[in-house]
Nucleic acid binder design. Sequence first.
RNA 1: GCGCCAGUAGCUCAGUUGGAUAGAGCAACGGACUUCUAAUCCGUAGGCCGAGGGUUCGAAUCCUUCCUGGCGCGCCA
Length: 553
Amino acid sequence: MKEQLRLALLSALKQCYVDGSLTSGELPEEVQLEIPKNSDHGDFSTNLAMTLAKPEKMAPRKIAEALVAVLQGNPLCDKIEIAGPGFINFRLTATCWYDVLDQIFAQGCDYGHSTIGHGTKIQVEFVSANPTGPLHIGHGRGAVVGDAVAAVLQAAGFEVQREYYVNDAGNQVVTLGRSILLRLRELQGEKIDFPEDGYQAEYIVDLASKFRSEVGELNNLSEDEAIQSCARFGVTEILKWIEADLQKFGIKFDHWYSEKNLYDQGMVDRQLDELKQKGLSFEQDNALWLRTTAFGDDKDRVLIKSDGSYTYFASDVAYHMEKFDRGFNRVIDVWGADHHGYIPRMKAMLTGLGHPPEDLEVLLIQMVNLLRDGKPYIMGKRSGNFITLRDVIDEVGRDACRFFFLMRRCDSQLDFDLELAKQQSSDNPVYYVQYAHARVCSINRNAEEAGTKQLQPKDVDYSCLKLADELALVKQLARYPETIVGAALGYEPHRIVFYLQDLAAQFHSYYNRHRVLVDDPATTQARLCLANAVRIVLANALRLLGLSAPERM
RNA sequence: GCGCCAGUAGCUCAGUUGGAUAGAGCAACGGACUUCUAAUCCGUAGGCCGAGGGUUCGAAUCCUUCCUGGCGCGCCA
């Protein structure tokens, strides 16, 4: 709809140049068409005349007049007006809007999808929490946002892979192994002094006892072997929890990528060699450094420490290069905002290795402040006192929890008060949206009980939908596809949430003002179509965000 | 000290990437269920868009300087 109008405008402009009413010959790279806030200003509005004022050296309103003279009589438009400093406002014909309903019924659950991504391969890597403990609320936010971003990109025609990077190599895994081993010895009756830097939490004891019953005791192994064995066991078990938690949240990854595997395959060393060959790394103080300052970072970064062990940055370099080797055109990392300091070094590394830095997009997820009764709940893996993501899902509910995380743009902080989330559950916005969906289903049931058979859209007279409320609703439905495109290109799934709330509000309002099932059969049929078009779009958007669309509530 | 993110109604936040008179939800107040589900709707009230300066036809949005809050600034992860 918008596109057709855009084309009409462009050809009108060309026509003006041909007939000489405009002279600059300037063609804007983009004709901006927006939906005015105030519906008195029409369905669409363009500032084209204003942007041409300078090259054309003419008053905007004069330019607008020239354009409108050509556009007058366009079949799409009911009314074209010049307003304010030089806006051109368009009101489209009702029939033109009714086409949207046909599109919705024809496309069904695909309505809203587009091909704007042209199959570009994008990988979204998210959560990637260390397998040393259960997921907490902050991971939950990253999980939901990452999942929704991936879904929205898919809907916009990108080819998307969801990946979880498993940090199963490195220090924290050794710490995990040692912690389990110590608890195991404790279970065997030894008196141990649990170190400060071990993982203190209760689940370590559970793991130790599970280890004892499934694997046995480790008296024959050396200390290192025992730690290794405990670590492997711990990582496997914890990954099972994580996967189960995510599944409970409705999130499924296409691929789990092991850091350890990266080392085992020699990919880290190969990548370090390449850096050396390209002269990007250097040795100093017995360590190997990457010269990231050459590409905008404020200091150089260590790849191999002076004790010979690798930093995380080393494997991150190899990992990210490997992503591009796998054929992704663009790579998205979803990180906690506390890692934002890593972005310059990652971009520097990419630039050094010949990738445009825009190929990596990092989405920073701001902190979640977990509260209970208004009091902050301190989270820390080592403190031993935390509420897991699973606890939250169980307490608040999956839909409400997901919705809550998606309601805000991800770069603003979020207060998550458990008591509030529960208390509000009866008037939680997610139910508001779902209720709209359930209402349409209920209308359908009533129609069926009353013996009203719903006609095929082609047999329905849409011109019965002449109320302002009805046209406004259709126009809102027409905006859904572009909402997805905007959400995808900006990596902003929250836009879908706001769209859903707007659509639900408009429908609730309409429902309270007018009956769908009325005496006149033609009107009833048309309104049933409208209501069901709303239902389809609500269901599509809810599904996109991983939320359920209940048929009754 | 340097960097990143934020600052919009009493509270929580949107604001279509620079457009016309800045919006919604809670909270407050007043109304609507013999009518398709009241988990709903209608109405009232609420603003120096943190502050100053700049860019232009036009700024909550862009540039700049401050102020406030959060987070980073390791051969930690």
